[in-house]
Nucleic acid binder design. Structure first.
Lengths: 363, 363
DNA sequence: CTGAAAGCGCTTACAG
DNA sequence: CTGAAAGCGCTTACAG
């Protein structure tokens, strides 16, 4: 497929950074070692005179020297790159997460490479391999539903890795999540406190812990008020949710169920769900009160101001970046190496009135 | 900042691919060269016996050998990676473009690294440098408004690069765009044919050619029907559009202007604009007919089915990937090297009825 | 204070 | 048919 005109190609390729440390050394009349030291600012110990250092730096600039990071990585063993693997880059939540992770990583001198799994475990494995051999120094991963075994492999190899948004409670691994259980519970309680007695839950059918936590938060809120009814819990397949959402909402609005409140467990579900409510001519909140996990752009097109759980995406990204860098820097010889620190960041319930309700920690 | 415990670190780092070609060679009792040939499937010329090749492959698998792509790239001069630089990863159009580019590149054995510029030329330059030294074999770039000079630099260095979505007509560079002028013109004509006489245009204020083309398409459509009125053309700053959109729409709906149609030149503008119309209580299409460049999620929440221009994102991604790979493979010694092929892909106007209107090529 | 040398893991032209 | 060696560009322990 690829013509292997290596020499010609390398010429071209190296056009980016044709001039090497050797070239500078020759020009200045010193060794490559000295050039390397100066250019890496390791000449502090006055090994190299200020004058010489200056001369080297000037010559490097003059010759448009650009370091070959490939060679540097090969030698030093690290690449200053973090691999970010998200489940769905076209989901605005993950896109925004990617944005903030990049911003944060930059502050620490790391670049971020993004890959997309489309919620497929097979693809997640593939992309981990691709990025691993790029290489990256560590991973931030939004894992797929059955991706736990592959994540374990990574851990066994002592690859720095941090999970984000989702986590596996049975694996000892650094993770950054929001307090899904509490957030969900408070959201439902808000609906109940505003008069709802029959609150429906619409969530994805998933073994992922954050999904279960959100569901459990809803259930416990309902139970506490003695109004839990399992038939109001609707779990939808991710792969067919676009089709299923209509049926689900019809069912919850039918005579037998007739809910007076609805809690959507993710932004994609609330987007699709609210669209469906709109098409069915159901007025929110007159006919039905609604609360959502995550803001949805649908909110902008409704008369009602919908309460929702605001995830602190920036803080989540920051925490994940810091955790993974910590692992990268960690002396793995030291047995105190701490690969497991689950960071749970509180989310906030944003309500139209009488002001935002801040969640208090679980008690 | 980073502890340089190199040896320990390399240990850890190489944990990913600790076993090298040498190790396999030693185990099997052959040279590293033979192992390399077999593993790269270059043993066709029967240089190495089938049996030996099989033995090497089995041993490699047994030892969990994973090639070090870093070393390979250093040696061969290419990385099989394409750098994708987008202006705003949180814009669903670019996120979707990124998705399709990744899918396509994968088919050719390339991985894609994504970076985000947030519409900042400074950041674009920075990310080009970061990716260049990763390295990547070529770039697909959604350039920023004043990024042309930096793109020129890339070209001078013979770096394979393809622009997408936007382009610079004064630079000889491969680009993939939609037929902005025609699409925009046909969209406006659709509004005119449906009874509009005063059509407002809402676009970003920008020197980028695709913006100008969309504007010109609108102007020419209006002029052709003898109803062009410059005061109905509204150009908004990207950085403040969230604030400006309300004022702009108020102005177009005021007594002096009172448009009967509105054309939004991008999806972010239509999203914000339709939200604004909604809040102002303006009914579409009863009070105002609307047409948009790109589908907006806002459409799902309106009674009216809004006509819009559908960009063939998948085809755009495919074309860009193919163009950049072509350049990467190109023998740069040959002077026929063709670095300039602007691919213009037709977009379609999607109308609620009586069926989709397909654009015919410019004539 | 500085240079020569080794080596990261790989590929490939060259010598046998 | 196969191995030994060179070299991609860099960094760093070592020898002076």
């Amino acid at each position: 497929m690829i013509k292997r005109l290596t020499h010609i190609f390398v010429e071209n390729f190296q056009g980016m950074s044709r001039v090497s440390i050797k070239d500078i050394a020759r020009e200045v009349g010193v060794s490559a070692a000295s050039v390397s030291l100066v250019l890496n600012e390791k000449d502090e110990g006055s090994r190299i005179s200020k004058d010489l250092a200056k001369k080297i730096r000037e010559k490097a600039k003059e010759m448009h020297y650009e370091p070959n990071n490939l060679a540097r990585s090969l030698r030093t063993g690290y690449s200053n790159t973090i691999g970010l693997i998200v489940a769905d880059i076209s989901n605005v939540f993950f896109a925004s997460l990617a944005f903030h992770i990049q911003e944060q990583a930059e502050k620490y001198g790391y670049s971020v490479i993004i890959a997309n799994t489309n919620e497929s475990t097979l693809k997640m494995e593939k992309m981990i391999n691709v990025l691993k051999s790029k290489p990256v120094d560590g991973f931030i991963i939004v894992p797929t539903e059955h991706g736990d075994s592959y994540i374990c492999d990574l851990l066994k190899r002592h690859t720095p890795v941090v999970l984000i948004d989702r986590f596996f409670p049975h694996i000892e691994i650094s993770s950054v999540i929001v307090d899904n259980y509490n957030s969900s519970r408070k959201a439902c309680e808000y609906l109940i406190n505003n008069g709802c007695r029959r609150v429906g839950l619409i969530a994805y059918k998933s073994e992922l812990q954050h999904t279960k936590d959100r569901k459990q938060g809803y259930i416990d809120a309902m139970k506490t008020h003695g109004i839990y009814d399992p038939s109001l819990v609707k779990e939808i397949d991710y792969s067919t949710f676009a089709d299923d959402i209509a049926i689900t909402i019809d069912s919850l609005m039918s005579k037998e169920n007739r809910v007076d409140g609805m809690f959507f467990a993710t932004n994609t579900l609330s987007m699709a769900g609210i669209k469906q409510l709109f098409e069915a001519g159901i007025q929110v909140p007159r006919d039905l009160k609604v609360c959502c996990f995550d803001k949805s752009e649908a909110f902008d097109f409704m008369d009602a101001k919908i309460p929702y759980i605001l995830q602190p995406i920036r803080e989540m990204g920051k925490a994940a970046v810091e955790l993974v860098i910590e692992q990268i820097k960690q002396d793995t010889n030291v047995e105190t190496a701490n690969y497991k620190s689950v960071v749970e960041i509180p989310a906030r319930l944003i309500t139209p009135s009488p002001g935002n309700v801040s969640f208090s920690p679980s008690s």
